[in-house]
């Protein structure tokens, strides 16, 4: 089956063509399109999505060597996301589906991330655990099959990617925060500053606002007058800060592997690009005897290939959706239930 997927939940516009598990095209505006529209930094604008979506669709179909008539199914992100941004990709996709008489599948963006490992040659095996980490999300979920998910925990404040970005800003490092913290941290001592790792009432929840504040206080203590911090100090701070975030993510993932004994564990979302996190993740997973699946960079950030994949999977599982479906900014997964520490 051939699926055409659309993603426009936030800054990125993306269109992808998939034939079953195989990506035929996966175009992302900030990476593939900046030459045409000038601007590498994703733009927060419905107008930008509107300008990009039609040409991206044409280019994706051409690159895939597929005619619109050959497409079996159309999938689009229905949320969560910004309503103005969502509406553009979603309405465009639904319009195509109605005009071309194709089945239309609304997809939950975060769910699509969980399953993004299936876009790789080495795929997750059910049941698998997914750690989703990005600028907007931090979540640990157990996936039993395509329609049965248990949300084990998530962040109660900042997302991991947000913690990286805000930490970078505190340290005077340029945007994007994650890659620059990682680069600066390579020269630093991760043991130099013992930043906290939050323990929460719910054991699979995360909190990163404490470490963010601890970094800020440490910078205030170390700074004398208006002089900038010494380069070595910034490197030590970055390394210690990164270590604290990575350690928090890994500790809870490890506890979840121990409790639920999944066959595979997948690290997904934009922050999966962080090298120390990938390494610690692979080590921990191997030590527990589970298979680690970390999608390549093009599938870690927001992309439409994962939306198309999820659309196909839902369709294969027999799920059908009305054309009256609308996007929903705070879309909760209809297939995920919450895990409780204290089952009654």
């Amino acid at each position: 089956m051939i699926a055409l997927g659309f993603e426009s939940s936030c800054d990125e516009t993306s269109v992808a063509v998939l034939e079953d598990d195989r990506t035929l095209a996966n175009l992302v505006s900030s990476q593939d399109f900046h030459k045409k529209y000038g601007g590498v930094v994703p733009e927060l604008s419905s107008r930008a999505h509107l300008a990009r979506v039609a040409p991206l669709t044409r280019d994706a179909l051409v690159q895939a060597g597929v005619e619109l008539a050959d497409v079996d199914l159309i999938a689009a992100t229905a949320g969560p996301g910004l309503i103005g941004a969502l509406l553009v990709g979603f309405t465009f996709a639904k319009g195509l589906a109605v005009a071309e008489r194709k089945p239309f599948v609304p997809v939950n963006h975060v769910e699509a991330h969980f399953f993004s490992g299936f876009l790789m040659d080495e795929k997750p095996e059910y049941p698998f655990l997914a750690l989703a980490v990005s600028g907007g999300h931090t979540m640990l979920v157990l996936v039993e099959d395509e329609l049965t998910l248990t949300r084990l925990g998530g962040t109660v404040d900042d997302a991991a990617g947000e913690a990286f970005d805000k930490g970078a800003k505190t340290l005077g490092l340029p945007y994007p925060g994650g890659p620059n913290i990682q680069k600066t941290a390579e020269r630093g001592d991760p043991e130099r500053y013992p930043f906290p790792i939050a323990e929460l009432k719910s054991k699979y929840d995360f909190s990163f606002s404490g470490v963010k504040t601890a970094l800020l206080r440490q910078v205030q203590i170390l700074r004398t007058g208006n002089d900038p911090l010494a380069e070595e100090t910034v490197a030590d701070l970055a390394a210690s800060y990164q270590r604290s975030i990575v350690e928090a993510l890994i500790r809870k993932t490890d506890a979840a592997i121990a409790e639920f004994a999944p066959k595979s564990v997948s690290l997904v979302g934009g922050v999966a690009a962080n090298k120390p996190l990938r390494e610690a993740f692979t080590r921990t997973t191997a030590a527990r005897g589970a298979k680690a699946v970390v999608p390549s960079i093009q599938y870690c950030g927001d992309n439409a290939a994962m939306i198309a994949w999820r659309g196909l999977a839902l369709h294969r599982a027999g799920e059908r959706f009305s054309n009256e479906y609308r996007p929903f900014p705070s879309f909760q997964s209809r297939y995920a239930r919450d895990y409780s520490d204290n089952p009654r």
Binding site: P80, I83, G135, D157, D158, A159, K166, S209, P329, S330
Partner: peptide, 22 residues
């Protein structure tokens, strides 16, 4: 979060990336 929880809302987290949470 403290205000929203008092008003019966759950799952409050930072909207920095999303711009708007509901």
């Amino acid at each position: 979060r403290a205000v929203a929880e008092t008003l019966g809302a759950r799952g409050v987290s930072s909207p920095t990336f999303a711009i708007v949470n509901e």
